[in-house]
């Protein structure tokens, strides 16, 4: 995938290529580069979390400390937003967080593929969250879940305006949740690729222009650092918003 030297097309990195074409009952289930990086992410996360805790040390080593750090980051998030009863959603939020984090970071490796740069993946994850929010909301509160759309303490005429707004804002949630992650990953990688392309173009131009290629190189380094921050931040934001939406499902009245 990465071997195509001289390919400066910044979009090329998002292309899906089939490694093992497959089809089951007319559905294309080919094992693609996207699937490969999903599998790598799952293997890395599982391996890391299980192997690092192998010692079950009372005083953690380096690996165990990192695993515990992630665990406590997410568990504190849940406890702060949802309280103790929200801990039943911990495996879901933790899996989402680790999966997005691993995919984002893997995408930063040169020549790799970023699973989360495809809107269909982020939309699927967002729909998973919203399905659970709606499902659990009705399961726990029954029709009381609809109070989510009716702000309390508002005069009746106002409700005719507010309820549609609340409904629209609720429907916008999965869209914003998926687009935020997808767009951040996409834009970040395109920017990186464009600047990397500048380096090659300038260096190849010869003369003074070659010397100028240091500029985009420095910018590329800075952007890479920022992309690492974004990669973590977007995973964290996804987990935080998941918690906030789950909180609505548990306590629908405003």
């Amino acid at each position: 995938m990465a071997g195509d030297s001289g390919n400066l097309d910044p979009i090329h990195q998002f292309e899906i290529s089939k490694i093992f074409p497959m089809e089951i009952m007319g559905v294309d289930v080919s094992f693609t580069n996207s699937s490969l990086f999903m599998v790598i992410a799952v293997v890395l996360i599982s391996g890391f979390l299980i192997l690092s805790m192998r010692g079950r040390a009372l005083v953690p080593g380096r690996w165990q400390s990192v695993a515990e750090l992630f665990y406590e980051l997410v568990s504190n998030l849940l406890r702060n937003i949802l309280g103790a009863e929200g801990m039943k959603f911990f495996p879901l939020v933790f899996s989402l967080f680790m999966f997005i984090l691993a995919c984002n970071f893997l995408g930063l490796l040169p020549g790799s593929f970023t699973v989360t740069s495809h809107v269909v993946v982020t939309a699927a994850l967002a729909m998973l969250v919203m399905t659970i929010v709606v499902g659990y909301g009705f399961y726990k509160n029954g029709l009381g879940f609809l109070k989510l759309f009716v702000p309390s303490g508002v005069p009746l005429p106002m409700l005719f305006i507010l309820v549609p707004i609340e409904v629209i804002s609720f429907l916008a949630r999965p869209v914003s949740l998926s687009i935020r992650l997808f767009a951040n990953m996409l834009a970040g990688h395109i920017t990186l690729k464009v600047f990397a392309g500048f380096i090659i173009s300038l260096a190849g131009a010869g003369g003074v222009l070659s010397a100028l290629s240091v500029g985009p190189l420095l910018l590329g380094v800075a952007l890479t650092a920022m992309e690492f921050l974004v990669a973590f931040l977007q995973a964290f934001i996804f987990a935080t918003l998941t918690c906030i939406y789950l909180n609505d499902a548990m306590h629908p009245s405003h």
Partner: peptide, 21 residues
């Protein structure tokens, strides 16, 4: 590309969820 991505996302995320939980 949607179908293969979704299928493999479901497979991978389910496995991850099971292993983690």
């Amino acid at each position: 590309t949607f179908a293969p991505q979704l299928v493999w996302l479901v497979i991978c995320f389910s496995i991850l969820y099971l292993v983690l939980s």
